[in-house]
Design a protein around this nucleic acid. Structure first.
Length: 196
DNA sequence: TTCAGGATGTACT
DNA sequence: GTACATCCTGAAC
C-alpha cells in the first residue's frame, strides 16, 4: 500500500468530515489468505443525536444499535431486508451514536474473488449490466468483500479489516441527499451523501 | 433505459 | 404484525 493505515484519531472527529475524508481511501479485508482491496467512492453520514434516519436516533439503545455507541474506528454491520449486509464505520467519541455508511466502491485488488462472491463467476464472465453495477451499493459491497454480521464490532485499526488514506481535492467531492430513507421526515433532505 | 414486484429474516411495536 | 440505511429479475418502452 502506498499510504498509511487510518488511525483511531481519524474516526474520532465530526462524522460529516469523516464521511468526506473517506472518499478515495482504500478498504482492505484480509480473508482466507487473500487481500480484497477497494477504493471508496460513495458514503453517507448517520448522526444519532439529530437524525431520524439513524438507527440510534435520539439516544435509542437496543442490542442492534449498541455498536453505534462504541469507540470510533469500530465496524457496525447489520442485516437489512432480510438478506443484505451494510458496513458502517463508527465515528466520534465512545458513547456518541454516529457512523458513516459505505455505499459504493471500485475494485482495486481481488476483483475476481469479489465477482465470485457476488455472482459465482469470474469477472470476465459477467454481463455488461453486472459489470456496470458491480459495487455501487452497500449490500453489493458487503457481498463482494465477504463482510457479514460476524464483523460487527470489529476494530478497524486491526489487521483483518482496515482502511488506508486517502485525500482528495475538495473539488472532486459531491454532496447530495441520502437515499432509501423516505420515512425519516426532515432528515430526508440532509445533504449527507458524499461521492467522488 | 426505466419500472414494478418479490425475496427474506431481524428488530422493534 | 410491520417496517426495513437493498438487490435482482423480467417486462415494457
Amino acid at each position: 500500500m502506498p499510504v498509511e493505515k487510518l488511525t483511531r484519531a481519524f474516526y474520532d472527529r465530526d462524522t460529516l468530515e469523516v464521511a468526506r475524508d473517506l472518499l478515495g481511501c482504500h478498504l482492505i479485508h484480509r480473508v482466507a489468505g487473500e487481500e480484497l482491496v477497494v477504493r471508496i467512492t460513495e458514503t453517507e453520514a448517520y448522526i444519532g443525536a439529530v437524525d431520524k434516519a439513524c438507527h440510534a436516533y435520539g439516544g435509542r439503545r437496543t442490542a442492534r444499535t449498541e455498536t453505534l455507541y462504541a469507540r470510533p474506528g469500530t465496524a457496525y454491520v447489520y442485516l437489512i431486508y432480510g438478506m443484505y449486509h451494510c458496513l458502517n464505520f463508527v465515528t466520534e467519541g465512545e458513547g456518541t451514536a454516529a457512523a458513516v455508511l459505505l455505499r459504493g466502491v471500485e475494485a482495486v485488488e481481488g476483483a475476481d474473488r469479489m465477482a465470485r462472491n457476488r455472482f459465482g463467476r469470474d469477472l470476465s464472465q459477467l454481463t455488461a449490466y453486472q459489470r456496470k453495477n458491480f459495487l455501487n451499493g452497500p449490500g453489493k459491497v458487503c457481498k463482494a468483500m465477504a463482510i457479514t454480521r460476524a464483523h460487527n464490532g470489529l476494530d478497524l485499526t486491526g489487521e483483518t479489516l482496515f482502511l488506508c488514506g486517502g485525500g482528495l481535492p475538495a473539488g472532486e467531492i459531491h454532496a447530495g441527499k441520502r437515499i432509501g430513507i423516505d420515512y425519516a421526515e426532515e432528515a430526508v433532505d440532509f445533504p449527507w451523501r458524499f461521492s467522488i
